[in-house]
Design a protein around this nucleic acid. Structure first.
Length: 436
RNA sequence: GCCCGGGUGGUGUAGUCCGGCCCAACAUGAGGGCCUGUCGAGCCCUCGCCCCGGGUUCAAAUCCCGGCCCGGGCGCCA
């Protein structure tokens, strides 16, 4: 029977070295492969950190253990107690000769996809069987790095005096216009899943939090079907009082550089698994105005001033600039109502952080003057009455403020050079997928 | 929403253009066997597939129609 003290004392693959030769250990994990040579059986055990070879010479191990081990199905969960043996012929220079070999849970066969990566699987098949897809070290590496990215973002922003908050995901109004919202059934009322914490983090500026951070889900009901859109994504949002767009751009580029530093320092193993070599991007990032950006885009297409940049335009600009850069001074009419215009009201204090042709973040100094804000809402064809809960916060002392929202999965995608944003989400929600 | 492309063993592909040589091939896998140094082990035997429904035809994986599902691009969007 399984002993609980074993569960508490088992070692992970990376904790064992050839120097532990002769020591008794307990290891646990999945049967990655079984190589049965007749009188000698090798079992490759896979755990969270790597692989361990379990070696069963017929003449050495007990016959019952030998029989059980050579018949165990791939991906079964096992716990092995045995002796570490220094062995140059074994991977990592050691192997384990088992005394006890316990099958904690037998796996069915055949498997829905190959964890060993001998046969590729399509993304759709992989996502349908994500629990197994995620067993592949390459896939797990993406989420180990994503975890580090989130930790790094938190650490950095906490050190800059940010307070982490949680704002509602169920909201009553179609907030910013632009994107489509998912309607939900909320008792007798109409409600939606929130597309962004924008209005709430601004209200918190009025509340005096001064610097807030939120990492949470956002929902977009767009019927897009591309490799860089999700219907549920994670947004890293910040809002900061007593600063302008320049202030939050500087914060953002420092954050990006810090995240790269931390990932390079702490995720070497996972970067190696992904065969990636990262460099900390140099800051400050180049800044180009919208007006000069369309000048570049005009090399390959017609584009009138005031139009949003389409993919073709962004590809032309991205090819010229490469890496990280900001596009600033956008036309006011293509940005949301809450952005602060310049003196010349045709352009606004809005910026996008780009990586190549991918938009990673978008931010601005916000309009904090009540009357101007109401006018701006009207100018977008929206009704100020439906924003009363928000506008109220601007009537009783709203400091000047600025902020941005960074798409976490897009950031992961950019850093790890993933070809599809779905790869950056454990259980992606797209146009057709709601399960698993 | 628009435009392309596609659905063949558990998985990934070939075959479809030009119907018959396909009661469908290859790899991986699964079941069994041999083998004491494998590390994508090797070798032998066996198992398993044409998305669904109509139609054309002597004959359909292949051609036509409808449906369902999926992928990509555009638009929109972060």
């Amino acid at each position: 029977m399984l002993k609980t003290d074993n569960i508490l004392s088992f070692m992970r693959s990376t904790e064992i070295t050839p120097e532990k030769d002769g020591e008794q250990v307990v290891v646990a994990g999945w049967v990655h492969e079984v190589r049965d040579l007749g009188g000698l059986v090798f079992i490759v055990l896979r755990d969270r950190e790597g692989f361990i070879q379990i070696t069963l010479p017929k003449k050495v191990v007990d016959p019952e253990t030998f029989r059980k081990a050579r018949k165990v199905s791939r991906e079964s969960v096992i716990m092995v107690e045995g002796t570490v043996k220094k062995e140059d012929k074994a991977p990592n220079g050691f192997e384990i000769i088992p005394k006890k070999f316990e099958i904690l849970n037998e796996s069915s066969a055949p498997l829905p996809l190959e964890v060993t990566e001998k046969v590729p699987a399509e993304l759709d098949t992989r996502l349908d069987n994500r629990f197994m897809d995620l067993r592949r070290p390459k896939i797990q590496a993406i989420f180990r790095i994503k975890s580090q990215i989130v930790k790094s973002i938190r650490d950095f922003l906490y050190s800059e005096g940010f307070i982490e908050v949680q704002t509602p995901k169920i909201v009553s109004t179609a907030t910013e216009g632009g994107t489509e919202l998912f309607p939900i059934s909320y008792f007798e009322k109409e409600a939606f899943l929130n597309q962004s914490p924008q209005l709430y983090k601004q209200i918190l500026m009025s509340a005096g939090f001064e610097r807030v951070l939120e990492i949470g889900p956002i929902f977009r009901a767009e019927e897009h079907n591309t490799t860089r859109h999700l219907n549920e994504a994670t947004s890293v949002d910040i809002e900061m009082s007593f600063t302008d767009h320049e202030g939050v751009m500087k914060l953002l580029e420092r954050l990006v550089a810090k995240v790269y530093e931390d990932v390079i320092q702490n995720c070497e193993k996972f970067l190696n698994i992904l065969e990636l070599k990262l460099e900390v991007p140099e800051i400050p990032f180049p800044r180009i105005t919208y007006t000069s950006a369309i000048e570049i885009a005009r090399k390959s297409q017609e584009i009138p001033w005031g139009e949003d940049l389409d993919l073709q335009a962004l590809k032309t600009i991205g090819a010229e600039l490469g890496g990280f850069y900001f596009i600033t001074e956008w036309p006011t009419k293509i940005k949301p109502f809450y952005v602060m215009p310049f003196e010349d009201e045709k352009i606004c204090k809005s910026f996008d952080l780009m990586y190549g042709y991918i938009e990673l973040a978008s931010g601005a100094q916000r309009e904090h003057r009540y009357q101007k804000l109401v006018e701006s809402i009207k100018a977008k064809g929206l009704r100020p009455e439906s924003f009363e809960f928000y506008l109220k916060a601007f009537r009783y002392g709203m400091p000047p403020h600025a902020g941005w929202g960074l798409g976490l999965e897009r950031f992961v995608m950019a850093m790890l050079n993933l070809s599809n944003i779905r790869e950056a989400m454990l259980f992606p929600r797209d146009r057709t997928r709601v399960s698993p």
